[in-house]
Design a binder for these strands. Structure first.
Length: 557
RNA sequence: UGUCCUGUGGUGUAAUUGGCAACACGUCUGACUCUGGAUCAGAAGAGUCCAGGUUCGAGCCCUGGCAGGACAACCA
């Protein structure tokens, strides 16, 4: 896909022109391992790794693991898997904020010695109240004037674990009257007596994110710290820390961009975690989840996610992207690569009354009309078939082109058939169709050149394999589930987001398919094989339906 | 009564030094088609948040408004 430069690229190019960092470009993707990555992170990953690729630079993967209470190894593993799946690699540059705990601690001690940090032993409420509000200045803590020696001693005791959680914090001494809340003597270290996923029980105190992030960037030689808009107001604080640290004119440049919002979805790890924990979905990788692992299981390809990221662009405008753009991106890619296959989701039996009993023949079908190199395959035809229930109407409206009593249609790659009889049960439900076929139309064309208005898909009843197919719809039925003041986002959960069809019949060529293999079920949509699928119990997920002007017409009526 | 950020078709992004507001998705036509898919051709849809100003000329520069968002976790 053609990549056009976004505003961050332009700023980087300007830095390059000015000869900053002697032409070096180094970015990083810094997730907190407290949940699975989602499509919004994909945007950031594509941006950061993309910048490195574009300018011949490097991109680090760094886990921001400064809060042992929320972080787990499971998340670390999933994040690495997802970044790789998207097609990016951090080489030997895998880092953790926890790699810098010693340096950070030393830096804190240095700040104390310089009189720029102090231990506060007031409770959280009091400290919070003293901070003021965005429109009112804060006032100074009585601990602010504590002598350096005492601060050093207290911080040492904090480090040694002599104090309980929450009893003491270390604060930077900046300006309680600053119009920027983040400069009002921010807390930089707090006591958390929890075991850390990497450092174990070595530490009782942990740096705050704000005290770690900028310094990690600095120590890693990051030239461009790309992050989301909400950190814009933190930038002066990060700069303040770097001011205390820097020994040359090198300083990472932070550039903020707008996080991704998608219609009909929620995009915060906290809420996604709630959906998982409360059982509204079946785990982080439920195909209805906007997580990278969910999209993967749903059948999205890495290419389609990357193309989507490219297409939406990068700006500072906090907007909302239409999911239809994401869906367009998968269809676009899958159309090129997915093998075509015939499958009947809601089967209706058809008997070809003039076809010999017990006979079977092989017909040739094209695997992908978009790509001749994908070749052809044989599909078996016989007297008893299944077609899609939706492809027959006993009393069709004007614009319905498919099968109806007395009407002739083409069975794809096979024959022209005409419906001669509709069989019903006592309840008046259609159970079976009788048709006749035209032997001269073998392969799908009639020698006399007569036309049919529709081609429908089918499978041979005797040859088809049974499969379970899961149809997914959007998880929420409101465009902006979290955008309503007094209504919880769960209220907008779509009760029909998952439809399980257990009696589907697919042509046998899919039997050996492996999990994650993509298919187009002709005329229906793109489907992929689920992780839980086996040769005996085939299981497909619908990635996205095909564009469908007939259903659009129907719904519009 | 703050600080910072952002306002361009329905949505998302472009517009070089100030020079006919462009592209994609979506929508609607039509062509073609053994997928009501894909493809191809075309159409509608904004005068750039508002008001002034500078200029031959402003989406872009200046002034003043308005609207939306972020910031008051010992979260990141």
């Amino acid at each position: 896909m053609a990549k056009r430069p976004n505003f961050i690229h332009l700023q980087i190019e300007q830095d390059l022109e000015e000869g900053k960092n002697s032409g070096r470009i180094h970015t990083r993707f810094p997730p907190e391992p407290n949940g699975y990555l989602h499509i919004g992170h994909a945007k950031s990953i594509c941006l950061n790794f993309g910048i490195a690729e574009k300018y011949g630079g490097k991109c680090n993967l760094r886990f921001d693991d400064t809060n042992p209470a929320k972080e787990e190894t499971e998340y670390v593993d999933s994040i690495m898997e997802d970044v790789h799946w998207l097609g990016f690699d951090w080489g030997d540059r895998l880092y953790y904020a926890s790699d810098y705990f010693d340096k950070l601690h030393q830096f804190a001690v240095d700040l104390i010695k310089k009189g720029k940090a102090y231990v506060d032993d007031q409770d959280a409420d009091t400290i919070s109240r003293q901070k003021g509000t965005p429109t009112r200045p804060g006032f100074e803590s009585p601990c602010r004037m504590r002598p350096v020696e005492e601060n050093l001693r207290l911080f040492e005791k904090m480090t040694a674990g002599d104090f309980p959680d929450g009893s003491h914090v270390l604060r930077a001494k900046i300006d309680m009257a600053s119009p920027n809340m983040h400069m009002r003597d921010p807390i930089i270290y707090r006591i958390i007596k929890a075991s850390h996923h990497r450092t174990g029980d070595k530490w009782c105190i942990y740096p705050m994110y704000d005290f770690a992030h900028g310094q990690c960037d600095y120590w890693e030689g990051i030239t461009h710290s790309v992050c989301t808009l909400e950190f814009e107001v933190h930038r002066p604080l990060y700069d303040w820390f770097i001011d205390q640290l820097m020994d040359s004119d090198y300083r990472p440049r932070q550039i903020e961009f707008a996080r991704l919002n998608l219609t009909y979805t929620v995009m915060s790890k906290r809420r996604l975690l709630e959906l998982v924990k409360e059982g509204y979905v079946n785990g982080w990788d439920d195909p209805r989840m906007p997580t990278i692992s969910g999209l993967r299981r749903r059948g999205y390809s890495p290419e389609s996610v990357r193309n989507f990221s490219e297409r939406i662009g990068v700006t500072k405008v906090d907007g909302m992207i239409d999911v239809s753009l994401l869906e367009y991106s998968v269809r676009e890619h899958l159309n090129k690569i997915a093998k075509r296959v015939m499958g009947v989701l809601n089967p209706l039996k058809v008997v070809i009354t003039n076809y010999p009993v017990g006979e079977t023949e092989e017909l040739e079908a094209i695997n992908n009309p978009e790509d001749p190199l994908m070749g052809t395959r044989k599909v078996s035809f016989s007297r008893e078939l299944y077609i899609e229930r939706d492809d027959f109407m006993e009393d069709p409206p004007r614009k319905f082109f498919r099968l109806a009593p007395g009407r002739e249609v083409r069975l794809r790659y096979a024959y022209f058939v005409t419906c001669t009889e509709v069989i019903k049960n006592e309840k008046g439900e259609i159970t079976e169709l009788h048709c006749t076929y035209d032997p001269a139309s073998r392969g799908g064309n009639s020698p006399d050149g007569r036309k049919v208005k529709a081609t429908i898909h089918w499978v041979s009843a005797a040859h088809a394999v049974k499969a379970e197919v899961r149809l997914y719809d959007r998880l929420f039925n409101d465009e902006n589930p979290t955008g309503h003041k007094d209504i919880d986002f769960r209220q907008f959960l779509n009760p029909e987001s998952l439809t399980v069809l257990k009696e589907c019949f697919i042509e046998p060529s899919v039997r050996k398919a492996k999990p994650l293999d993509h298919f187009q079920f002709e005329r229906l949509g793109y489907f992929n094989v689920d992780y839980d699928s086996t040769e005996e119990n085939l299981l497909f997920n619908r990635t996205v339906p095909l564009r469908d002007s007939w259903s659009k017409f129907q719904n519009g009526k």
